[in-house]
Structure formats: C-alpha cells, structure tokens
Lab assay of single mutants.
Amino acid sequence: MDEEYDVIVLGTGLTECILSGIMSVNGKKVLHMDRNPYYGGESSSITPLEELYKRFQLLEGPPESMGRGRDWNVDLIPKFLMANGQLVKMLLYTEVTRYLDFKVVEGSFVYKGGKIYKVPSTETEALASNLMGMFEKRRFRKFLVFVANFDENDPKTFEGVDPQTTSMRDVYRKFDLGQDVIDFTGHALALYRTDDYLDQPCLETVNRIKLYSESLARYGKSPYLYPLYGLGELPQGFARLSAIYGGTYMLNKPVDDIIMENGKVVGVKSEGEVARCKQLICDPSYIPDRVRKAGQVIRIICILSHPIKNTNDANSCQIIIPQNQVNRKSDIYVCMISYAHNVAAQGKYIAIASTTVETTDPEKEVEPALELLEPIDQKFVAISDLYEPIDDGCESQVFCSCSYDATTHFETTCNDIKDIYKRMAGTAFDFENMKRKQNDVFGEAEQ
C-alpha cells in the first residue's frame, strides 16, 4: 500500500465507483478503499435476508415463511433508472452494461384523492384515464405537443414562451391547466419533490418532461429500469471497470487518518501504512468535519406477500404521492420490486416508501404510502441524515459526494458526479471521457 497514487477513493457507493471508473479509464492511477467488507456503502443491496434483520437490530431473524435468505437482495436506497437518463448513458458509454441485466418497471402510478391511478404512457391511455376530465385532456394534450416540439435552440418552437424568464406557473396558465393536472405534471412527469420549481424559469421543467417522455418511448410500460439482483450491482459494475483499467481495490480496510500538508491532501493512513495521493474522493462518512447536515430522509422497507392493490398485479412499480394531495411540502414515493428481479424469495415483494422528513414524527409522514401497502409482513425503518460538503474541495483537493436524496431516480446523483468531475479535472464533464479506450493495455477482449 505504500505507494504513490493520482487519486484515492474512500467508500464504494455508486458515486465513488463511477468516479473511480472514469478516473481509471482516463489513465489515472487509482486506489479504492472501503472500511466495509462489502461494496456499495449507503447504496448497497443487503443479502442474505438475515443480514438485513441484523442491521435493523431485529434479533429474532426472519421467519421460515420468508423463504431462503440467499434469495434476497434488499436495497437500502430505493431508486430506478430513467431509461433515457444520465446513468444509463454512463453505463452505455463505459460498457458496464455487459455486467448487468435490466428489466423495465411495469408501471408508474400517481395518488389522487386517496386512490392510485396509472400515469398514462400512451395517448390512448391518456384519453381513457380517469385522472382528468374530457376538456382537461384536450388542454393537457396541447401542452404535451408543445413540450414535444420544444427545442431550446429554435425560438420558432417557443410559442411566445421565453425559456429563460417565463416561469412554469405562467406556462401552466397559458395552457389553462387545472391544479390536479399541474400536480401530476410537476411531480409524476417532471419528478420534482416540491413546488419550488413553479416560480423558476420553465426551461428545466420542460426538459425534465421531455426526458420522461423519451424514456417512456424506449420501452413503453414506464420510463424506469431496474437491474436484476438489486442496485448493489451498479457500484460493483463500475468497480470492475476501474479494476480492468488498473485500479487497486481494498475492502474491509480501516481508514485511520487523512493526511494533510499546508491545507492540501497528501495521503491516507491505514493500519500503520500511508498511501500518498494528489486528490481524494470520499463519501460524507469519511470526513464528518468537512460536511454539513442538509436534512433527513425516511425510508421504510416493507416486505409483502402480495402485489400492491390497484396496480394490475404489477411485479414492479412506482407510486408518487404528490405533496398537495397530503398537505406536505415534499412528495412521498413508493418503489416496489419483487422475486421477478431476483431480489426476493418466490411470491414475495419489496416495497420501499420514502420521503424528505418535515416533522418530528417521520413515520407518521409516510402513513399515506403504508396504507396502500397493507397487509405488511415486516417493516424496517431507516431515518438517514443527508450531508453535503461545506466547500468545493478545490483548495484541499478533498472531494466529497452528497448523500443520496429522496428522489426515486439517479439524475441528482449523476449531477453530483459531473460536478465533482468538473472540480477535479478543471474541465466540464463530457460523456466521451467515459469511453473505454480501444486496444489499450487494460481493455477487455470482446465477449
């Protein structure tokens, strides 16, 4: 370990593993360490099931009705991949897709007046949907046509809207959309967690709705994908990429100290040895004095023996409960997957309800979601602090990732990755940087 590296990475969460992969592909010498004996950090999948019970201090362990412990891979952080989103792009560019198998999530649902409705995925579904009345549908269709044709580089498509100054509230007004449709559009399509976006320039919202539609167009059922064997497969896929390009991995490796000289990182000390480096990437748990708390998320993992009611017996789905429907500031989400994804025993389902904490009784906040899941065989409640770095790391060369937020997709995580890359490399992130180099010394032969 007593060696000189360009970059040392602490923690094998998804953000850290993707950055480690990119740095290795770009010719950097990388050492990647984790104090845990497993990959994934906060974003790991726990197996066998006995391990999950232990982690949540349920000492009696799983009953026999849960089947074989080894058949379970339970995500600690519930997220899906947008089919046309940035993480899929990263997987394709790096060819990490060859280590993973994905399934399309069967449906996306939205909560309205105590019931759940399928988010329409085709024009026919939209016309048949009970989510809105006849005239509302016509106006909504006009709005969707506007979004589909919108091109930020072609003012002819703006229809009198200025993407940089017109607020989204004004765009909704222009198409005369009612409150329910606005809730549905902002939260189930643009996937905002709160209503803060309404008074911001509309460009980002329009682009988010386009991303949803384009992702949906790829597979038809929903815009989301999920990897077989759980999300823990993602960091491992990128760790393989890093290793192929010469990255060194050490799990179960305690970090005793991060060594600084004149305010700059110069190395990491572990078990009496020092590895030197020019730059350091880590998750917040490794540098508690360089991060601040930015809120909390509650996630309740529920094991069920039945599909969720009114989802047409889907073996995977997402449910969004827009905040307006339950008098909150932030949406509540449910991600459900099952034995069909090799993450649970035969006939079992895993539904994870999550939201940003707003009160001193977080469990009560998630109740509307839990009511949709009854009866629940077993619950595991996790309340996590969200951390963000206190500075950009440019001076110390210590670059810290943000905690995983309450969103049900990876777009915010990818933004964090691109942002850290830019601060480390001094140049904007470009997907081309992730391409495997042809015929290089570490390149794998085609399968």
Rank of each mutant, 00 (worst) to 15 (best):
G232T: 15
E152H: 14
D313Y: 05
T205N: 00
T15P: 00
L49R: 04
T407N: 05
I390A: 15
N252Q: 13
F429D: 02
K309R: 10
E95Q: 09
E159Q: 08
P48S: 03
K54G: 04
S24P: 02
E365N: 03
E371W: 07
V104T: 09
N327L: 01
M66T: 08
E358G: 05
L373D: 03
H341L: 09
D289L: 02
L87F: 06
I319V: 07
E446D: 07
P235R: 00
C394D: 15
R218Q: 09
L251T: 15
Y333C: 11
Q86L: 14
P78L: 04
G13D: 02
G232D: 06
L251M: 01
I350M: 06
L241C: 01
Q323W: 14
N36L: 13
Q164L: 10
G443L: 15
T248K: 00
L14P: 01
I303T: 08
P163Y: 03
P120S: 06
G114A: 05
D289H: 13
V268R: 00
S338A: 10
Q447P: 10
N324T: 07
C317E: 02
Y38G: 04
K210T: 09
L370V: 07
D419Q: 05
D71Q: 09
N439R: 13
H409E: 06
M90I: 08
S24K: 13
F80V: 03
V88S: 15
N26Y: 12
E388R: 14
A445W: 15
D2M: 05
S401Y: 01
F143S: 03
N439D: 10
L58V: 07
R290S: 02
T359I: 01
D331N: 08
A275R: 03
I301N: 13
Y245C: 12
V381N: 00
Y286R: 14
G272W: 04
T427I: 09
I417S: 09
S24H: 13
A126T: 08
D34N: 00
G11S: 05
E371A: 12
F135R: 14
L216P: 01
H32L: 01
P155I: 09
K174N: 00
R173P: 02
P254H: 02
G113A: 12
S242Y: 14
Y229R: 15
A126D: 00
Y53R: 14
P201H: 00
D283Q: 03
K269I: 01
N26T: 06
K142D: 06
N130S: 12
Q447E: 06
S65A: 10
D416N: 12
F442N: 14
T413R: 02
D154Y: 04
S213A: 01
I300Y: 01
D283N: 07
I259L: 08
S401H: 00
V381W: 15
G133V: 07
L58W: 01
L216M: 02
N324S: 11
